[in-house]
Design a protein around this nucleic acid. Structure first.
Lengths: 377, 377
DNA sequence: GCAGCTTTGTTCATTTTTTGAACTTATCTG
DNA sequence: CAGATAAGTTCAAAAAATGAACAAAGCTGC
C-alpha cells in the first residue's frame, strides 16, 4: 500500500503530466528533501520513472512520469457483442485482448469476466501482480461511487450493483462508468488532453455523448448526468425524440439521425463519408442534412463554451471525417454563437479513435480511480 | 500562520459545513488522535468552535464549525456609486458599513480603500488583528489568480492588476471577482447552499449572471468565463444583442430587457411587480412578455441541468418576485426541456437578496480564498 | 578551456506530525 | 442500573518532513 504522500504525487502527475522533483515539491507544498525520498521509493517500486531531461541554466531537471508498466488495468466494454476485454498499461497501450459473449445478467457477466481474466493476464508475466483495477464501460447512468448502474436502457437495467458483483467474483477493485465519460477519461490519461485541466469531450457516434473534466478530475454531476448534451433542446418544436421531448440534439446531429435523414431523403448513403462525398459534388439534400447537423452540433458546442468555458473541446469519432462540410459548419456555428470576445479562444479539436475506445476507456476509469481517486480535501 | 492540516480542516468545514471530530478525521484520512490535537489548537486560536451536539447511540458527537468571529473580511462592490464597503464576519454578518466615491482609476480606488479602511475597522475592536482578506466585486472578467481584471466594459478596463495595487496600498490579501461569481460564493459560504457541493447560481438582475460550484469549489472556467449564460443563443435569429450576436438570453429575459419590452409595448410598468400585476389582471402584452422571458430563462436553466447536472439551481434576485407568471413559466420550461427521467430531480430555488449582495459577495470571495484557496492536490 | 554561476537533487541530524492502543466520557437500551 | 456503544483524549513510539549544508550537472563569459 502506498502512503498518502506517494498517492498525492501520483495524483499530481496524473493531473498535470510529467514534472521534475523540484516542481512536484513546490506544487505539493513539500520540501525538496521530502520529495527526494518519496520519488526514490516510488521509482524503486517500479511505479515511477525518470524520463526527459530538461536543460536550462543550472543543473538540468529530470522529469518524473508514471512508469508505463508500473500498473496494469483491465477494461471491458458492454457496448458491443461480443464484449471486448483489454489489458492496458499506464500509457493506454493495449497489451492483450480477449472477448466474451455479452449478457444482460450481471452475475453471468461477472462469471464470464472471472473466467476470461486468466487468459488475458497470461499474456504478460507480471500483469497479475501489478493489476491495479478493472473498469467497465456501459451505456447508461452510473451512481457517484461508480459502483451501481442506476439505469441502462440498452441493458435493461435499473439499480444493478455491477461493480460489487464483479469485485466479489474477481477480487479486483472495480469501477463502472458511462461510455462517454470513459472516453473522456481515456483522453485525459492516455490521449491528447493530458495536460489540460478543464475540458469537455464530445463523443460523436450513433449517439452523442459528452463529459467534462474540471480541475483535472472527471466531473460526473450530481446524479452522474453531467454532459448529457444529446438531449438538450436545440430546435424548439423540432422532431420528436425517443426521450419524449422534441428537437433534441440527438434528433439532428447524431450519426444515426444523419443516416436516417439521408435514408428519408432517398439517398443511398451508408456512411458519413458517402454523404460528405455527395455534398461535395453538389447534392442539395446531402448539403441540407450536413448543414442542419453541423449547425446543431455547433450551437450545442457554443453553449458548452458559454456555460463552462473549457480550455478545450475534443470531439472524438470512430467513423467518418470531420474535415468536410459537417465539421466546417459545426465550427462556424460554434464561433457564431459564442460571445464575440470569446470566439476562437477555445480550441475545438477532433480526434479519430479506433475500435478499442470503449474498452480502453473502461481501463482508463480504473486507472483514473487508482491515480486520482476520491479527492481528499 | 496555520499548519497545512489546520488549513485542510478549515477547507473541509468550508466545503461541507459543521462536522464532528470523528467525521473530520475520517474525511481527512487522519486518526482521531491527530484530529483531537488539531481541533484543540484551532479552538484555542479562536478560529473554530463547538456548536451543536448530536445524540445517537454512544457518546454524543459535537459538531465543529468556523467561529463567526474567528476571521473578518472586507468586501467592496464596484457596481454602485458610491461604492459600498462592508466588514463581514465568517457567517456573512455585516458588522460595519462605509461608502466611498466610485472611480475608474485603479490607483484612486486603492487610495480610497486605504483611507476608508480604518473607519470600517474601528467599529469592532479585534477586527484589525483578525482581518484575513479583502474582496472586490466588479462587472467584467477576472483572471484565474483573481488578481487582474482582464476586461470590464462598465469600468472601461483592460488588464488592470487591481488586486496587486490594493494589496500594496493596504497590506491586505486581496482578491477580485466577477459579480455573479461573488454572489455564488456568498450563497455557498453564508447562504442557502452551504452543504451542497455542486450547484449553479443564476443572478437575475438588470443583466443575467451565473456561476458554478463544482466539488465545493468555485469553478471559474479556463478564462474566468464559466457561467456566462447571458449570451447563450436562446432564440436563433432573435433580436440583436449589444454583444454583437442575436437572440441571446440577455435580450429576452433580463430585467432590463423585460422593462424595455414593456416600454416598447406602451405599458406603464416600472418594475417587474407592476408587470406581474398587469399580467394577473389579463393584460395580453404583459402576459406575452413574461411568457417569453420565462420560457427563455427556463430553457437556459434546462440546458444548465442537462449540461452540468447540478444538485441545485439557485436563482437570486434583488427586485421583483419569482412566484408569479415569470417564475411559473420558467419552471415549466425548465422541466419540459430536460430529459424526462431527470425532470423534477434538480431543485430550483429562488432567493431574494438584499442590497448588500455585492459587497457581501465580495467579502465572501476573500473568505473563500482564505478557507478553500488554491486546492493543493 | 576553465572559473564562477545557477539550479537540481541528495544527505542526515533535528523537529514536527501522526499513529496505535488503552482509556475516559457521555449517552442510549433494556 | 448494568451493559452496550460510540466520541473524544492521552501519551509514548513511530513516521514523515524540514533545514542547512553539500554534491552534481550543465551553462556563461572570458
Amino acid at each position: 500500500m502506498l502512503t498518502s504522500s506517494q498517492q498525492q504525487l501520483l495524483r499530481v502527475i496524473g493531473q498535470s503530466g510529467p514534472l521534475s522533483r523540484t516542481v512536484l515539491a513546490a506544487s505539493m507544498g513539500l520540501s525538496k528533501a521530502a520529495m527526494s525520498g518519496i520519488a526514490r521509493d516510488l521509482i524503486s517500486l517500479g511505479v515511477l520513472r525518470e524520463t526527459e531531461t530538461i536543460y536550462g541554466q543550472g543543473r538540468p531537471s529530470i522529469l518524473l512520469d508514471l512508469h508505463p508498466e508500473g500498473a496494469f488495468f483491465v477494461g471491458i466494454s458492454l457496448l458491443e457483442d461480443p464484449a471486448p476485454l483489454v489489458l492496458s498499461d499506464f500509457n493506454g497501450n493495449i497489451i492483450a485482448r480477449q472477448t466474451m459473449p455479452l449478457s444482460r445478467d450481471p452475475d453471468a457477466i461477472a462469471e464470464m469476466i472471472a473466467d476470461t481474466l486468466p487468459k488475458l493476464l497470461a499474456e504478460r508475466e507480471d500483469a497479475d501482480r501489478k493489476l491495479s483495477g478493472l473498469g467497465v464501460a456501459l451505456s447508461g447512468f452510473v451512481d457517484e461511487k461508480q459502483a451501481n448502474c442506476v439505469k441502462s436502457t440498452l441493458l435493461g437495467w435499473q439499480d444493478v450493483p455491477l461493480a460489487g458483483i464483479i469485485r466479489q467474483k474477481t477480487g479486483i477493485d472495480t469501477f463502472i462508468e458511462n461510455d462517454a465519460k470513459a472516453v473522456a477519461v481515456s483522453e485525459k490519461l492516455f490521449g491528447s488532453a493530458r495536460d489540460v485541466q478543464n475540458f469537455s469531450v464530445v463523443s460523436f457516434d450513433d449517439g452523442i455523448g459528452c463529459a467534462h473534466f474540471v480541475g483535472g478530475k472527471l466531473y460526473r454531476g450530481n446524479h452522474g448526468g453531467a454532459g448529457e448534451i444529446a438531449h438538450c433542446t436545440i430546435e424548439p418544436n423540432g422532431s420528436p425524440c425517443r426521450c419524449g421531448k422534441r428537437g433534441c440534439l440527438d434528433t439532428v446531429a447524431s450519426l444515426k439521425a444523419i443516416k436516417e435523414m439521408a435514408k428519408a431523403e432517398g439517398l443511398a448513403c451508408h456512411s458519413l463519408n458517402d454523404l460528405e462525398t455527395e455534398a461535395s459534388i453538389g447534392n442539395a439534400a446531402a448539403i441540407r442534412i450536413l448543414h442542419r447537423a453541423g449547425s446543431a452540433l455547433g450551437l450545442a458546442i457554443a453553449h458548452l463554451i458559454q456555460f463552462n468555458d473549457p480550455g478545450l473541446i475534443l470531439i472524438t469519432h470512430v467513423e467518418g471525417r470531420f474535415d468536410g462540410l459537417l465539421g466546417t459548419v459545426m465550427r462556424q456555428a460554434a464561433e457564431a454563437n459564442v460571445l464575440p470576445r470569446y470566439a476562437g479562444q477555445t480550441p475545438i479539436r477532433t480526434h479519430r479513435v479506433d475500435g478499442d475506445v470503449w474498452a480502453r476507456g473502461a481501463a482508463s476509469i480504473a486507472a483514473h480511480n487508482f491515480l486520482i481517486g476520491p479527492t481528499p480535501y
